[in-house]
């Protein structure tokens, strides 16, 4: 059964080219979800890093809403939003990404001991951020669909 999920390891390459006008569509959703900011995307030819996030005031109808299946690069994601008292009280993952690769035989390389340490939060100003955002994008997409259903 799990294998079925794995073998459907499709990868979708969807370029959502965010224009300045479109940015407003996703950012409030993230704010709603995590109460935090996310790195904004911009296609303007300047290096300005706008981190303003608007706070949505939408209330939702109580109930459980299942979002569309969204591709997460490493597999599919589907989320269910639980709305209670007009607010999101829980978000459940119905499909988790599974890596689609096969294992690889790794030879015993002559290895130095690699430096290891606990991760530490860095506060330095940066120009950009690298991260596996695919899952999050799919998450936003599926949750957005669920919340659309929850609107009056």
């Amino acid at each position: 059964m799990l294998k079925k999920i794995i073998v459907t390891g499709f990868v979708l390459l969807t370029f959502v080219v965010y224009s300045i006008h479109q940015r407003g569509d996703t950012t409030p959703l993230v704010a709603q979800l995590s109460q935090t900011t996310m790195p904004n995307t911009t296609n303007t030819p300047s290096a300005s890093n706008n981190t303003t996030v608007s706070t949505p005031s939408t209330t939702y109808k109580d109930g459980n809403y299942t979002g569309s299946t969204a591709d997460a690069y490493y597999g599919y994601i589907q989320v269910r939003a639980i709305i209670s008292g007009g607010k999101i009280t829980d978000v459940q993952f119905l499909q988790h990404p599974n890596d689609r690769g096969t294992s690889v035989e790794i030879n015993n390389y002559a290895m130095p001991i690699l430096k290891q340490q606990a991760i530490q939060v860095q506060s330095a100003q940066v120009d950009g951020v690298s991260g596996a955002s695919d899952t999050s994008q799919a998450f936003i997409q599926s949750l957005g669909d669920a919340l659309q259903q929850a609107k009056a």
């Binding site: 599974n98 096969t102 899952t135 999050s136």
Partner: peptide, 11 residues
Amino acid sequence: TAIRGQHIYNP
């Protein structure tokens, strides 16, 4: 992946 707790299988 940004989601914890998923299981990765060798197909």
